[in-house]
Design a protein around this nucleic acid. Structure first.
Length: 563
RNA sequence: GACCAGUUAGCUCAGUUGGUAGAGCACCUCCCUUUUAAGGAGGUGGUCCUGGGUUCGAGCCCCAGACUGGUCACCA
């Protein structure tokens, strides 16, 4: 690995520290008893405190210095005075350790007393300090002025996502997003628990990926010698638990879909699914809007949030619009009592691309998706979806063409999806069979697996149940005004960054010798390689250029080392 | 998958017509005992994403590729 000048300097400091008898990575605990936040909130002049954190600012003014320590709660200024730290004749601790060997990013512990500077800033007068961990890489540290303008902000998205640890250290707003994310999960969990529902875990590794139509990640179980899939939903398992007698079950489920990635899709994401017995989708709409109002308020302090150009209000109740009315409203076309062909012609007339693989439901869904969905900014329940698109949903109580399903749309995006769950096992089997036919017709959104075990469970009897799923990542995007899912995932999926260095055959051969012996004398390596002078020169230059090996001149001669 | 844009110092970014690779901050050395993004003086630091090509000469032009972002397609 090629080190930058800054990294070499820091590594040299390690040696200097050890020479002074200072362990740069001590093992013993450090008796922290305050945080930066607590100090600022409960300030008393002269109070003795012990804190620890990263050194994030260092301003040396001769025999005294100001610095800033960043801990998990924020930053606090500390004041280093040479004669406070070094009461005797030996001023090494201030002059060498603090002034020269400590770098920004190092973890240090501080013992000191609180005071307020002439400018009025709460500060710790350092009585003693200890290096807790040396940072060998410089942080990409931005600066902020008194007006709050930042300079040299660490903003390259690729670097921020790949090095989220550094992003979190230097960009406080990033941390806020993740604090809110966890607050959201806590709020939702509290709301469900207070309603008497039961948090469960169901299999992530499944032999039939059910409950949704999406391409799964496939893997293989060696000792069973069968294909297995990462789940694309937990719906079927949760319903099996309702069959088993729970009144309400929910799961925060990491879910995996082997599909395209963009700013709203990550291959692994988090779904919350909840199923409640003896309820229907009307009840679930009431429940959902109360839930979201509660969660938004817990996360942001009130039910309103700004997302892009829009202010969204999560305050219940939300508008409820049937899909038929939505389409009538935005296209003037009434889908009720129309045949598949009439709808296909209407869609074509609207400029929507259609093909024969599309069934009636798919056509209606396309019309809605392209002509209506984007118009709903405030939370709106779209209800009563066509039957064909909803194989797990109970037929509508007053129209057999429709199902008792709703989606919650916010800013033109689907946030939640819910049904009165289909619990008629014979109907369910027929719907699955219809799906298999659709899949055979070429509809890649139709499910091709039939989960016989799920049907068996339904045959034992499932109470009337309503279920609802929420895309948690999307919800937190709305609540933190982030347009990109990568901003709300600690470690969004990225292509591997490691470059495969292509080596020539000669280079590989020399490299393999080095693997056996490194470092090795240059002449002996050359001899072992059996290469001509010219070839040898090219090969060793290629290897050094790719930073795979290092050639060093030492008193013993030229040495070649694996980098 | 298609199209557009980007990739230069630790960070943020300039880089003219193809002619010795730049700035600010950071870093290093020296001075400075209550400062507030930036005290003063001096200095160091580069795989210009990678690989080819054109050229006397490429950060810049051409070709191929990598990665990232955006838009579209896809994603019930």
């Amino acid at each position: 690995m090629q080190l930058s000048e800054l990294e070499i300097i820091r590594r040299e400091k390690l040696g200097q520290l050890r020479a002074l008898g200072i362990n740069p990575y001590p093992a013993d605990l450090y008796p922290v008893n305050h945080t930066s936040k607590a100090i600022k909130e409960q300030y008393t002049e002269g109070k003795k405190v012990i804190i620890a954190g990263r050194l994030m600012r260092k301003k040396i003014q001769g025999k005294a210095s100001f610095a800033e320590i960043q801990d998990s709660q924020g930053r606090i200024q500390v004041y280093f005075n040479r004669d406070e730290i070094c009461s005797g004749e030996d001023k090494m601790k201030y002059n060498e350790l603090f002034k020269k060997l400590l770098d920004l990013g190092d973890f240090i512990g501080i013992e000191g007393e609180l005071f307020t500077t002439q400018v009025g800033e709460i500060t710790i007068l350092v009585k003693d300090f200890k290096l807790l961990s040396k940072a060998l890489k410089p942080l990409p540290l931005p600066k902020t002025d008194s007006q709050g303008n930042t300079y040299d902000e660490f903003i390259d998205p690729e670097m921020r996502y790949r090095q989220r640890y550094a992003d979190l250290v230097v960009n406080p707003k990033v941390k806020e997003v993740f604090v809110k994310r966890t607050k959201l999960f806590t709020a939702m969990r509290d709301f469900f628990n207070n309603s008497g529902y039961f948090e469960v875990e169901t299999p992530i590794l499944q032999s039939i990926p059910g409950g949704a139509a999406a391409r799964p990640f496939q893997t293989h179980h060696n000792s069973l010698d069968i294909p297995m899939y990462m789940r694309i939903a937990c719906e079927l398992y949760l319903k099996k638990l309702i069959v088993g007698g729970f009144d309400g079950v929910y799961e925060f489920a990491k879910t995996f879909r082997n599909e395209g990635m963009d700013r709203t899709h990550n291959p692994e994401f988090t779904m919350m699914e909840i199923y409640v017995a003896y309820k229907d989708y009307n009840w679930m709409m009431d429940f959902t809007e109360e839930l979201l109002e509660y969660c938004a308020t817990q996360v942001n302090g009130n039910s309103k949030t700004v997302f892009g150009d829009h202010e969204i209000n999560f305050k219940a109740p939300y508008a409820r619009v049937t899909m038929t009315d939505a389409i009538k409203n935005f296209t003037g076309f009434d889908i009720s009592d129309k045949t598949e062909n009439e709808i296909r012609e209407a869609a074509k007339a609207m400029g929507i691309e259609v093909d024969n693989a599309m069934g009636k439901g798919k056509l209606i869904d396309e019309i809605f998706g392209q002509k209506c969905e984007a118009n709903y900014i405030q939370p709106t329940f779209i209800t009563d979806y066509p039957k064909e698109m909803s194989p797990l949903t109970k037929e509508h109580r007053s129209n057999p063409e429709l199902t008792e399903r709703f989606e919650l749309i916010i800013c033109g995006k689907e946030l939640a999806n819910a049904y009165s769950e289909l619990n008629d096992p014979i109907d369910q089997r027929e719907r699955f069979e219809d799906q298999v036919k659709l899949a055979g017709r070429g509809d890649d959104e139709a499910t091709e697996f039939i989960d016989q075990d799920f049907l068996r469970a339904l045959e034992y009897g499932m109470p009337p149940t309503s279920g609802m799923g929420i895309g948690m990542d999307r919800l937190i995007m709305f609540l933190t005004n982030n347009a990109s899912i990568q901003e709300v995932l600690f470690f969004p999926q990225m292509k591997p960054e490691k470059k495969q260095v292509a080596m020539s055959e000669d280079e590989k051969a020399v490299f393999n010798i080095l693997k056996e012996t490194s470092p090795i004398d240059l002449n002996s390596l050359k001899e072992q390689s059996g290469l001509s002078n010219k070839k040898w020169d090219k090969t060793i230059k290629g290897l050094t250029k790719h930073n795979l090996v290092k050639v060093e001149k030492t008193p013993e001669g030229m040495l070649v080392t694996m980098a």
